[in-house]
Simulated assay, not measured.
Amino acid sequence: MNIVFFAHPAFLGHQSMPRFAQMLADGMAARGHTVVVWAPEAAFSRLPAPGPLRKWLGYLDQYAAFPAQVRRRLRACPPDTLFVFTDHALGPWVPLVVGRPHAVHCHDFLAQRSALGEIPENPTGWTGRQYQALIRRGYTQARNFISVSRSTAADLQRFLPAPPVRSDVVYNGLNQAFGPQDPGAARVHLAAKTGLPLADGYLLHVGGNQWYKNRRGVLELYNAWRALSAHTWPLLFIGQAPDAALVADHATSPYRADVHFLTQADDALVRQAYAGAQIFLFPSLAEGFGWPIAEAMASGCPVVTTAEAPMTEVADTAGFLIPRRPATGGTAWAADAARTVEQVAALGPEARAQAVAAGLANAQRFTAAHSLAQIEAIYQDIVRTPTAA
């Protein structure tokens, strides 16, 4: 196959989407397909300008300059070229290839749902609603979709004006070599490398400041757990530097001396952190998939996560489930969820080994090779099927 992947521009500074696009491109190239990646390049957005204006200059790069480039490039593409949008948020470019073989990968519709007022934790302003409407007008013209979870596929179905030609679900494959390590050795090494008191064990969260990651809820949960537990394990946040709200919450925590933020961690350190954690906390409010659940389980770490899809899809029966934090506040929620955390903390050696084994077995569902094989078969079927264009 000849495959053109549409990807987010590098100047946006995204993390997970470029990795996903690269995994697809590398995976298909390794399978013998001819692959090229198209993405906007910084031109207008390189001009000196204040922050808010720079965003609008970036829109010129994405939605004025880049479409003109695509139209020129399309003339050189063979008729059987498959055009793949690595994220449905690239929807404004979909009309450029309607009528030719194409596929759209869908990760989550949280921004779309927020723009419609469906998520009270994330209100969207007027310009944001217009932008999401532009994205929706684009991807709804597509005919072939691949979603990362059944939950995402269900949202897609609600947003499409008519049934698509095909709508498949392919779970994400882990894009790093996550695996169990000796927990004690991992903790000692991590403590030495970071200078933090982690050698005796710790609780872990990996994620950014996005509203749905619920980092403030992680801290609430930790505070409630410490209040009832005899354990004094610290809490390690890995990801972005905390935002102002989390900084304020941290300042009032009675256990603030035991809460540590680790930013700019490389992949090797993150893998080690998963392997050494006593418990991985992932009380997300929403996700498209929930990569860290699979990453932690593949690393041999028990997971406490939210009892809602798609977290339940990824954790399956191997996770320890807690309710979703209510939009009205988390005090009662944290006290309830802390009892589940303590249940995991109190596991004896045999019970913990069983929990770890269940997680490792569950994580086998999310191998990159399996995901890429499924995606390749879908791509090939789209190219072979004239009605899929």
Rank of each mutant, 00 (worst) to 15 (best):
E220F: 02
E220I: 01
P180H: 14
N209D: 02
R226T: 08
G179H: 15
H205W: 03
G179I: 12
G195A: 04
W211K: 10
Y202T: 10
A186M: 09
R215L: 06
G201N: 12
E220H: 13
R187T: 13
G195T: 01
K193M: 15
L219Q: 05
E220G: 04
W211I: 06
K213P: 01
H189D: 14
A192F: 00
V188P: 03
G184F: 02
A191F: 01
A186Y: 09
G179T: 15
Y222N: 06
A227V: 04
H205Y: 03
D200R: 14
L221H: 07
A191Y: 02
P197A: 03
Q210V: 06
Y212N: 15
K193P: 05
A186E: 08
G179Y: 11
L198F: 08
P183E: 07
G184M: 13
V206I: 15
K213V: 04
L219W: 02
R187D: 11
G208I: 10
P180R: 07
A199E: 08
P183R: 08
A199M: 04
H189C: 10
Q210A: 05
A224K: 08
R215F: 00
A199Q: 10
L196F: 10
V206G: 11
V206M: 13
A185D: 07
N209Y: 05
A186L: 09
L221W: 05
R226P: 04
V218P: 05
A186Q: 10
G207W: 03
W225S: 04
H189T: 13
L190V: 13
Q210T: 07
W225P: 04
Q181N: 14
H205V: 08
V188S: 03
Q181Y: 12
V188N: 01
L198R: 12
G208A: 09
V218Y: 04
L204P: 12
Q181D: 14
R226I: 02
L203N: 14
G195W: 00
L219A: 10
P183L: 08
P180F: 09
L204M: 11
S229C: 07
S229V: 13
H189P: 08
G207V: 00
L204H: 11
R226D: 05
P197M: 01
D182E: 09
W225C: 06
G208E: 09
H189K: 12
